[in-house]
């Protein structure tokens, strides 16, 4: 299909889609309506479980199975990225030249690194009380680590980033979530049932299993995203593609014959 034909085809379909979608929207309850039956039940259930942040209660207790699936997606994506971005047989690694960074940037990075890590821990730890939680905090932790890349250079990042153990930490945390579900079965209850003591409402340790799973998710996300970004940076910085080594422009190999060598 030519570009024009493709666009026309799409636009024609899009008009129909838009019309139906708009008609469907008129059937929805009006924006900012007051009736949310599931939400009301979930809030009540969170109170019973003494979890102040209802969203954490839903994510790690009431609908924990969703989160198990979600963390498995993250685990699988990290695994997949490791596999896809592995060094191919015909590639080699080249250590990049040490970079020069403006002193102000370096200072800023050095100061901000601990602050970012602290913020990340704070967000993870308060997951079941206030906005935040394992996922958000984990991403902030991972980003904080990569400030080192900006502040100093790639080598410094490699020094402070124990990639091999983070890899294992990611897997172990993902496994810990699945394994924590068995606590319920071991106590004669259902899989992923929150059978730990619930504590007092509004305390950091309240919510039974919720803070534990929250911590596991924090570890998994933090280490998983670091590993993920690490492989992308490796590709962008370290790995020399075969075409680069040959000095041959891959443009020549592209086009129609690229697939049918």
């Amino acid at each position: 299909m030519s570009r024009r034909l493709r666009t026309c085809l799409f636009l024609a379909a899009a008009v129909v889609l838009a019309a139906f979608y708009a008609a469907a929207c008129t059937g929805l309850p009006h924006f900012a309506g007051l009736v949310h039956p599931y939400g009301t039940r979930a809030v009540a259930a969170a109170f019973r479980q003494r979890t102040a942040n209802v969203i954490s209660s839903i994510n790690f207790d009431q609908r924990a199975f969703d989160t198990l699936g979600e963390e498995s997606i993250l685990f699988a994506a990290v695994l997949g990225a490791i596999v896809l971005l592995r060094r191919a047989r015909d590639e080699r690694e080249a250590a990049p030249a040490p970079g020069r960074v403006m002193p102000s940037t370096r200072l800023f990075g050095t100061v901000m690194l601990p602050i970012t890590l602290l913020t990340g821990f704070y967000i993870v730890a308060h997951g079941q009380l206030s906005p935040g939680g394992g996922f958000q905090g984990g991403v902030i932790l991972a980003t904080g680590l990569h400030l080192a890349y900006i502040a100093a250079d790639y080598r410094a990042l490699e020094r402070i980033r124990p990639l091999a153990s983070l890899d294992v930490a990611d897997a172990l945390a993902a496994g810990a979530f699945a394994a924590l579900g068995f606590v319920g079965i071991a106590k004669g209850a259902a899989y992923l049932q929150n059978v730990l003591p619930l504590g007092t409402f509004g305390q950091l340790s309240s919510g039974g299993l919720v803070p534990v799973i929250n911590a596991a998710v924090g570890v998994e996300v933090g280490s998983g995203i670091v590993v993920l970004i690490a492989h992308f940076i490796d590709q962008a910085v370290e790995i020399e593609s075969p075409s680069t080594q040959d000095g041959q422009r891959p443009d020549d190999a592209s086009g129609a014959d690229g697939g049918n060598r």
Partner: peptide, 17 residues
Amino acid sequence: LPLAVAVPLLGAVLLVV
């Protein structure tokens, strides 16, 4: 029922580690 999902997940973790 949940075991059918949890067992392969734990197995995958075991294999990676």
